[in-house]
Design a protein around this nucleic acid. Sequence first.
DNA 1: CGGCAAGTTGAGCCAGGTCAACTCCGGTGG
DNA 2: CCACCGGAGTTGACCTGGCTCAACTTGCCG
Lengths: 255, 255
Amino acid sequence: MKSKAPEQCQLCSLYYEAENFCAKLSGRELDELHARSRLVSIKRGQMLNDDVLERWPILAIDSGVLCLRNLLHDGRRTIAAFFLRGDILDMRAAENRRLGDLIALSPVSLCRLSPEVFDHILSVNPRARTVAWKSLSGQAYRALSHASDLAKKQALEKLASFVFECRRRQKGLNREHVEIPIRRRDLAEYLGMQPETVSRCFRDLEERAIIKVSDLSVIRILDLPALRRIANGDRVLQALGQVPDPVFKIVTKEA
Amino acid sequence: MKSKAPEQCQLCSLYYEAENFCAKLSGRELDELHARSRLVSIKRGQMLNDDVLERWPILAIDSGVLCLRNLLHDGRRTIAAFFLRGDILDMRAAENRRLGDLIALSPVSLCRLSPEVFDHILSVNPRARTVAWKSLSGQAYRALSHASDLAKKQALEKLASFVFECRRRQKGLNREHVEIPIRRRDLAEYLGMQPETVSRCFRDLEERAIIKVSDLSVIRILDLPALRRIANGDRVLQALGQVPDPVFKIVTKEA
DNA sequence: CGGCAAGTTGAGCCAGGTCAACTCCGGTGG
DNA sequence: CCACCGGAGTTGACCTGGCTCAACTTGCCG
């Protein structure tokens, strides 16, 4: 019975959003999971440290943006992925922790699930298992998609792809306005570019009237097909911004 | 009873390697799965087409290298991931097929598993479920790790990382010789660079006596620490056959 | 052994990194 | 209220790692 859910869970998107994990649980399962789990709040910039992860390796995001950040020896930083409400992270594999640190990019509310209860639920509740499987599968999908973007796309194309990623992942129905849930600096780290380049690319898209940057965290898509073509790597369109310059190459520069 | 396994399965690494999926099945489960599945061979370069994937979305690799290749509109190609023996792919999510095409980079032998039987096994056999979960989780891990590599690393660093990826994934015990299971051209697509650059980087590593390229498909690691430092983005070392300067203590994590 | 694809080498160039200067904005304290 | 501060974002100028193109060599398969 929904009305019997623990009060804390009533306010948690993992429960009140019908497609999320906790919404699939029976009253008894939810009670048991709740009893052995911990809902915590994390401030922006804060990192989940390793020894706590050791004891609480299953994380379910209620709200906010958590990211996986990786530090190279000489200080270069990369954000490999970010996680939003509804995502379930399984950090039990030791190797997963070598990927980097989990850091809050905004205030985050998440639930540390008891691994034992989680596992038990997976074994007895097919609908919950499906949700968990889909979450993991979705993470793999996004990581692959992101890797494709990083491998061969140019800066402008990566940014356009990113806008679509945000659009796909945002819950709201508004498809024209897209929320950029992270700051420019973090966005740059996610896309493997410099903040300066991110800024230049936004300006470029805006000058071509493809998007409108309202404030730093919301953009409006003005020309969806154009944006899509850029995201898909259609270089012909990208060149159109430029004045179709004379095709002559001046060869008189040598002495 | 192992001796009762279908003859075809006896020869399949998914069964005879103890850590793989089919090895975890009871005799009855294996029989049932075998009866409703199809072991197929695929030639190099051949692509698994979509309508077949629709009916047979669960693939288990017996041998060979399968990759996920993504084509941009203007012809740029990316290999987002490659899959080796033991890997289980779940292409049921429609979105997964938008990531690109599954293409054999070498002769591949794989088993198309019946989704129904597969699902049923996941619900009743915890050990098999764990294997499947780990396979998926490993794919997510590698994709994230790969994305980190692509985002901020330079060509030489990416190549060094790739050598370690191959090393981790290869089954044999020999840790000094690493098999490069794919060709230069494919490797370039995987690392988001040009074949020319791959070639130059191999030569560079060889000139510094860090690796020895025996033939195109096997390398020998001569200086493991140096290779590791490069893979981890230690630019000091990269700046040409460097004298091992004062040993910097790398302090990764601190309060 | 011939033919073709894969891989390598070299020379030149450009997208995006780097550096430095500047603006913008929210918070803080006088 | 304003002055001040610090961090984020933006802009411009310059520089370089790796892409491009072209020529060459090597390896593979009939």
